[in-house]
């Protein structure tokens, strides 16, 4: 007959099982169809009543103990298995697959920033209309108050294509917009401009500009200043100091150049030209200069990008140095 010592030994064996299979065979050994306890219960029928009651009671106690041990070991073994899994280490530091990210060009990044700034302020950006690289002489020069033989024409060496030319400034879009739209006008134009300069550290024959044009009834120089200061600070942070220097452009008057203070170099750096739209331009394009005034400015995108990313050679922006270009990634 099964006695308490057998049960005690059995529980010991159960407690030492290491796998689910060992545990299962231990269960079958006691509680399976032909298990010791199952058989012992079966054998109870042959006993007389008193003895049966007494034996049954102790058998039930044995069964409960065995069952409890089985449950406990099941938990114990599943913990062992879990620990085994948890110990399986992978080298998660192997290089990720296809993980190379590209980058938008620094010039595009600046354009995107400016575009966002001016769009939020209600300026309409014209890329598809009023925006041509190959331009009429009139839009690039004469309508902008730069007559033939004017010395200002030689400020910008122009590429010609028959009777047309490659625009030397995005201001060439001003006449196109002014001729077609009625004030109030709030426009920005992004595009390429061309000047006959051999590429060197500070020059490239092709570069990008943004032109901003604002025409309304009551517009004055204070509006110009606020708009320019705001966009410069939007790009470069609120501590950026600006300086307005009187200058000359035939299509604006008063004209100014705007410098920003470079704290490290301890000097002013010119970054854009601006002014109130010249009454002659407004008149040339079919509006009444006594009723409408406005401001305009043009800014070189390369200059801003170089300033922002600390680039020293403008030609780098037109090269294929991927390491450098992908490093210009401050705004992504």
């Amino acid at each position: 007959m099964i006695n308490a010592q057998d049960i005690h030994d059995g529980i010991n064996i159960i407690n030492q099982t290491q796998t689910e299979a060992d545990l299962e065979s231990a269960r079958l050994h006691w509680l399976g169809k032909k298990g010791l306890l199952t058989n012992a219960f079966k054998a109870l029928g042959a006993l007389d009543k008193d003895e049966r009651v007494e034996k049954a009671k102790s058998l039930n106690e044995f069964k409960e103990k065995i069952q409890a041990a089985l449950v406990q070991s099941k938990l114990r073994i599943s913990q062992i298995l879990l620990n085994e899994k948890l110990n399986q280490q992978l080298d998660m530091t192997l290089p990720a697959r296809d993980a190379i990210k590209g980058n938008t060009h620094p010039i595009s990044q600046v354009i995107n920033q400016l575009h966002r700034f001016f769009e939020l302020r209600g300026f309409t950006s014209y890329s598809a209309e009023h925006n041509f690289d190959v331009e009429e002489e009139s839009n690039n020069f004469s309508l902008l108050n730069i007559p033939e033989n004017h010395p200002a024409r030689s400020m910008q060496d122009t590429f010609f294509i028959g009777s047309q030319l490659l625009r030397t400034h995005v201001s060439a879009s001003q006449p196109r917009i002014l001729k077609q739209l009625n004030p109030p006008i709030k426009a920005v134009v992004f595009g390429r401009v061309y000047r006959s300069d051999q590429p060197d550290v500070t020059h490239v024959p092709v570069f990008h500009q943004m032109e901003c044009l604002y025409i309304d009834k009551k517009c004055h120089f204070g509006h110009l200043k606020d708009t320019i200061d705001a966009f410069i600070r939007y790009l470069f942070g609120h501590s950026m100091k600006t300086r307005y220097r009187s200058s000359y452009f035939p299509f604006t008057e008063p004209s100014v150049e705007i410098d920003v203070w470079m704290p490290e170099e301890k000097q002013w750096l010119e970054i854009l030209g601006a002014g109130m739209v010249h009454p002659n331009v407004i008149k040339n394009c079919g509006h009444d200069p006594d009723s409408f005034r406005g401001f305009a400015f043009g800014v070189g995108i390369e200059r801003l990008a170089m300033l922002y990313f600390g680039l020293k050679d403008v030609r780098q922006l037109y090269g294929a140095d991927v390491e450098l270009l992908s490093g210009c990634d401050l705004w992504q």
Partner: peptide
């Protein structure tokens, strides 16, 4: 020009977004 006060322009919504950009 440094003596001239900055005055914000009136912000109006853009009528038309730049599809190209």
């Amino acid at each position: 020009y440094e003596k001239i006060q900055n005055v914000p322009i009136v912000i109006t919504p853009t009528h038309q977004s730049d599809v190209v950009i």
